[in-house]
Design a protein around this nucleic acid. Structure first.
Lengths: 306, 306
DNA sequence: CTGTTAGCGCTTTCAT
DNA sequence: ATGAAAGCGCTAACAG
């Protein structure tokens, strides 16, 4: 009944040379006492904590909730726990500000869903296992992304198939990541963009894709107050699926992106980067799907198939 | 330049008797090398990990996001990190299933936002520092809750002040925590309840409070398909504030509950329970507020002040 | 004022 | 097939 033997048994040591009788006895006693190995001691010895840190900008956005869910589940399957760091909306800190979590041995690696753009490669965070999730970080080979072009294509094909020829996309500015604008700012942005579109007059688009749920609310408000009917005057598609879309005044069609899969893939990539060195970017290939609701119809002037 | 002295200096040992010169030198070198104490080793020695686990049912519900945000921020102020455990919606496990996190020294305590009702006191989880947040768990003295009655009063006073005399509240069954029903079930529940109310005929309520955002969507759908106007025929109030309420067909008035404060209070309570033993339940007293939007008006038959 | 010592609970060579 | 011993990086009690 001696300690190192126990360790070998409980860890299923590959070069295991223990008498079946002893092995039984150990397992029995362990279970009887409800023994739990101390992860701290184990981690100290092994230089592996079994934890990740997920840096996320704004918990209230449903998009990150789904990402989170996928990551959490995959991590727990792989025997990791994940702690959450919420990046403040104002004065966000650069990713390298979270390096300390690894340096202190609190985590084995970083999942970065926030990305303040930096001038060059972020040397400071480069030393530490990490992946950027749903964004391209400054250093290549550490990004896990989706086929956003595919999402756009899905949208275009759908509305083009119905006869639309003038199509707009409203989305946040690309240089600053959307996450840095407050929720309300996002809505205002959506509303402003739509108002501008309306004011421009002339060749109004007959279909419009909107980049986030919050912007969508702004767009819808602008359309309503301008007296534009959806989908009578203009068709609207959200690039941010949420079940609440089904319950709006007019239920909104959306492109549903594989966010949970993205989160899971990010965890896989991070695990790979902890074992080996960075390799190449990961593109999540799960199919996107279009959730068809009432906000899309043929364009107002459409006379049938061309 | 020797190790235990460094420890004393960096920890600001109370009985600190170190020459200022040495203290300077140590700090200088520490900073120069970017030294980070290893939290694992420290935790192993001190029997404190500096981490909490937050067990939460459904990440996609905005209510949890706000709770989470409050808890995360307060925890980080107090020097703790928090890891998230997402409880599956189907086959949820009892809180005691998360005891192992403390037993393995992965966390110092548990924040439990999920609460499968159990027959008696949950002895299994009782041994471990924990608080139930926003629910009453089986064992007393470990609950952090809000003044839900106050929320109801706020709603009643508001609509009663406008002349409403027949008021209904639609909410999930209380014996099973709302969290155990799927989102869609919640909506169906809202829709079904409202349909029943409508079918009952006769003395229809002129105002209705709804317990969660998801149920609200169901209620609104039912009202629309029944041709009941909001607030013309019936006033509607949500007990679950979310900014998207402002962007619905008719913007919905809500009671805004101090969820972030609740999360923060839960962290405070948990810290207290880690240092000392359990004391008494905590009631968060932050004021609730009514966010007035367009979904509330005087009742249809109202002739002026009584 | 500062160095020495003894662990925290585990894993992992190396000896039996 | 198992025990002994060293050590992960730190802190705390005790000497000097």
């Amino acid at each position: 009944v001696h300690v190192s033997t126990v360790s070998r048994v409980l860890n299923g040591d590959p070069g295991l040379t223990v008498r079946p009788e002893t092995i039984e006895r150990i397992l029995a006693v362990a279970k009887a006492q409800g023994y739990r190995p101390n992860v701290l001691a184990r981690a100290l010895r092994r230089h592996r904590t079994g934890a990740f840190a997920f840096v996320i900008p704004l918990l209230r956005n449903p998009i990150w909730a789904r990402l989170q869910g996928g990551a959490l589940q995959r991590a727990s399957e792989a025997g990791y726990v994940v702690m959450l760091m919420e990046e403040p909306l104002e004065n966000p800190r650069p990713p390298s500000a979270y390096r300390y979590l690894v340096e202190e041995s609190r985590a084995d690696g970083l999942l970065l869903a926030t990305a303040r753009r930096q001038a060059g490669p972020d040397a400071a965070v480069h030393e530490v296992p990490h992946v950027y999730v749903n964004r391209r970080g400054p250093d290549p080979g550490n990004n896990v992304i989706m086929d956003e072009a595919g999402a756009a294509r899905l949208f275009i094909d759908h509305v083009a198939g119905l006869g639309h020829r003038r199509v707009a996309v409203i989305d946040g500015p690309r240089d600053v990541d959307t996450v840095y604008r407050r929720v309300s700012a996002a809505r205002r942005y959506g509303a402003d963009s739509m108002r501008e579109l309306l004011r421009a007059g002339g060749e109004l688009p007959t279909a419009c894709g909107v980049g986030s749920l919050n912007q969508l609310f702004g767009v819808l408000a602008a359309l309503r107050s301008a007296g534009a009917a959806v989908p009578g005057d203009i068709s609207v598609v959200s690039f941010d699926e949420d079940e609440c879309l089904a319950f709006l005044e007019v239920p909104v069609t959306s492109v549903c992106m594989p966010l949970a899969e993205l989160g899971a893939a990010a965890v896989d990539a991070l695990i790979a980067r902890i074992d080996g060195p960075a390799s190449s970017d990961v593109l999540v290939r799960e199919p996107m799907s279009l959730v068809s609701r009432a906000s899309v119809a043929p364009p107002p002037d459409y006379k049938g198939a061309s």
